Simulated assay, not measured.
Amino acid sequence: MTDLTTYSDMADTIEHIGAIVREYRRGRRLSLRAAATDAGVDPTTLHRIESGEQVRHHTVAQLLRWMDAP
């Protein structure tokens, strides 16, 4: 695995994942339900993430991959 960032940068991303996902979703003009469907997560889960609740690491990874997709 190539080190593309620092561990501190990754920790900051994880700590702010809700706001990051919300900003990304709104930037793409997607409803919460449409974004959840597109990302492959339950809309309730996406709402909880955007609200700042803790989530499982595999859900964070799934959302980050979705945001990186073309």
Results as ranks from 00 to 15, higher is better:
59 T>C: 03
44 T>N: 12
9 D>V: 14
26 R>A: 09
56 R>W: 01
5 T>C: 08
51 S>G: 11
42 D>E: 13
42 D>V: 10
69 A>V: 05
22 R>I: 06
10 M>Y: 07
59 T>M: 03
11 A>E: 15
55 V>F: 11
63 L>Q: 04
30 L>H: 08
18 G>P: 01
31 S>C: 07
37 T>D: 14
46 L>A: 09
12 D>Q: 14
8 S>T: 09
33 R>H: 11
43 P>K: 12
6 T>D: 02
27 G>T: 06
39 A>L: 06
18 G>E: 00
59 T>D: 04
69 A>G: 11
57 H>Y: 12
52 G>L: 02
24 Y>S: 12
45 T>N: 07
60 V>S: 04
53 E>P: 00
32 L>C: 10
30 L>V: 05
17 I>P: 00
70 P>Q: 08
6 T>A: 02
28 R>K: 14
34 A>Q: 13
18 G>Q: 00
47 H>Y: 08
6 T>V: 02
3 D>Q: 07
15 E>M: 13
15 E>R: 15
3 D>C: 02
7 Y>D: 13
67 M>D: 10
48 R>N: 13
6 T>Q: 01
35 A>G: 03
6 T>L: 06
4 L>Y: 05
28 R>D: 01
44 T>G: 12
7 Y>P: 07
68 D>I: 04
54 Q>C: 02
13 T>E: 12
20 I>V: 15
36 A>Q: 08
1 M>T: 06
9 D>S: 14
20 I>Y: 03
21 V>G: 00
56 R>D: 12
15 E>N: 13
59 T>W: 00
51 S>H: 09
4 L>V: 11
57 H>E: 09
23 E>L: 13
67 M>K: 02
52 G>W: 00
11 A>W: 01
11 A>K: 10
48 R>H: 13
64 L>A: 10
52 G>C: 05
15 E>F: 03
45 T>P: 00
25 R>D: 04
45 T>H: 02
2 T>K: 05
64 L>T: 07
13 T>R: 15
15 E>I: 01
32 L>Q: 15
46 L>R: 11
13 T>M: 05
37 T>P: 01
9 D>G: 09
12 D>V: 09
13 T>K: 10
38 D>E: 13
17 I>L: 09
